[in-house]
C-alpha cells in the first residue's frame, strides 16, 4: 500500500513539475533554462534564432534555451503571461493589440527592418510602379491579417477607396494566383517568394514584388518580446539572452558564415531545396540588415509609431498605447 502511495505521489510531483513556469528550472551544469517561443514554423525567417541555438551562442551565455516553433494558433505574448515562455517573437500589431488590452509586454529588439510581407505579381501582366497602379487590379488580401491593414493604408494614402480595386479573399494556398484569378497576391518575400518565383519560372513566367515600405507604409514585423516582470526581476538574464541572440543573428548573416548558416537551416527546414534556401537566406539578409551600418535588432521608432497610428486609424485599437515606451534596447 505504501508503495502505491509513493508511486502516486511521484506521479503528482511529476505532473506538477510540468506546470512550473518556464525558466524556474535549473538545467544541468547550472545553466539557466529558458523557453523562447517563435512566431512561425522553423524557416529562414527565424535563421538567427536557430543559429544562436545551434552554434552555441546561448550556451556561451550560460543559458539553456529551448527554441519552440510558432504557428497560427500560437501567441508568444499570451505564453509570456501564462508563464509558458520567457521570451518570444511577435509582430508589432500583436504587441500593440496586447498593450491596448493591458498586457505587460515589452519589446527587446526589432528583428526585421523591412517587413517581409509584400505582394507578388506578374510584370508581364500588370505594371505596378506606384500605388495608383493598383487601381482596377485584383488584389489578394487576408481579411483580418496584417496584409489587409497594410493594403487599406496604402490605398488610403493615395486617396483610393476599396471600390477602386477588386479585393480577392486570400486563403492558405496560392491556386488563385497561379490560375490568374488575382493580379497581386500577398507573400512573405523572403520565405515564400523564392519558392513561388522558382515554380513560376519553371512555367516560363516572370514575377516581381510590390513592397509597401517603398511607398511609405512601414508596418513593423517580427520583434523579440518578453514580460515586464522578466525585465524587472531578471535583468541580467534578459541582457545575456539578448546579447547571445543578436550575436547569433549577426553571425548567421555574415557572408563568411553562409555555409554554416545553410547547414543549420537545412537541418530544420528539410523540405526546401538547397538552392531555394540560398535565395531565401540572401533575401532575408536584405530585410534584417539592409546596410552594414545597421545593427540587427535596431528599433525603427518612427515605423513603430506609424504602425500604432495605422491601427488607431483603422480602429483596431480604441486609444493610443504609446508603444514607444515599451521599446527597450538591451
Amino acid at each position: 500500500m505504501k508503495k502505491i502511495w509513493t508511486g502516486f505521489l511521484f506521479v503528482i510531483l511529476l505532473t506538477a513539475a510540468q506546470f512550473l513556469p518556464a525558466g524556474l528550472l535549473a538545467a544541468e551544469g547550472g545553466k539557466e533554462q529558458l523557453t523562447y517561443r517563435l512566431k512561425w514554423l522553423f524557416n529562414v525567417s527565424v535563421m538567427g534564432d536557430l543559429y544562436a541555438g545551434e552554434m552555441g551562442f546561448f550556451e556561451g551565455a550560460n543559458l539553456d534555451v529551448t527554441v519552440k516553433e510558432g504557428g497560427p494558433e500560437r501567441d508568444a505574448i499570451r505564453e509570456l503571461e501564462l508563464g509558458y515562455a520567457d521570451f518570444g517573437v511577435a509582430s508589432a500589431d500583436q504587441v500593440i493589440r496586447a498593450l491596448s488590452k493591458g498586457s505587460p509586454v515589452v519589446v527587446l529588439a526589432q528583428l526585421f527592418q523591412v517587413n517581409p510581407l509584400q505582394w507578388i505579381y506578374r510584370p508581364d501582366r500588370v505594371e505596378i510602379t506606384q500605388v495608383k497602379d493598383l487601381k482596377a487590379k485584383t488584389v489578394g488580401v487576408t481579411f483580418g491579417g496584417n496584409d489587409e491593414t497594410i493594403m487599406r493604408t496604402l490605398l488610403a494614402s493615395q486617396g483610393l477607396s476599396e471600390g477602386d480595386v477588386r479585393i480577392y479573399s486570400v486563403r492558405y494556398d496560392y491556386t488563385p494566383f497561379y490560375r490568374r484569378k488575382a493580379d497581386l497576391w500577398p507573400v512573405y518575400v523572403n520565405s515564400q517568394g523564392p519558392i513561388i518565383s522558382w515554380k513560376l519560372k519553371r512555367a516560363g513566367e516572370r514575377v516581381a514584388f510590390f513592397d509597401p515600405s517603398a511607398h511609405g507604409v512601414k508596418f513593423v514585423a517580427n520583434s523579440v518580446v518578453t514580460s515586464v516582470r522578466m525585465v524587472r526581476e531578471h535583468p541580467d538574464t534578459v541582457k545575456r539572452f539578448m546579447q547571445a541572440l543578436l550575436q547569433g543573428w549577426e553571425a548567421a548573416f555574415k557572408p563568411e558564415n553562409s555555409k554554416a548558416a545553410l547547414e543549420v537551416l537545412s537541418k530544420y527546414d528539410r523540405d526546401t531545396p538547397r538552392p531555394i534556401l540560398e535565395k531565401q537566406l540572401a533575401m532575408t539578409r536584405k530585410l534584417v540588415k539592409p546596410a552594414d551600418s545597421v545593427d540587427i535588432g535596431t528599433f525603427d521608432r518612427e515605423a513603430w509609431q506609424q504602425t500604432e497610428r495605422i491601427m488607431l486609424e483603422q480602429q483596431q485599437i480604441k486609444a493610443p498605447v504609446g508603444v514607444d515606451k515599451v521599446l527597450i534596447q538591451f
Binding site: R78, E81, L82, K101, G102, S103
Partner: peptide, 10 residues
C-alpha cells in the same frame, strides 16, 4: 486568480 490581462482572457 492569476491576474491575467484582457489580451489573454477578455
Amino acid at each position: 486568480l492569476f491576474g491575467l490581462s484582457d489580451y489573454v482572457i477578455p
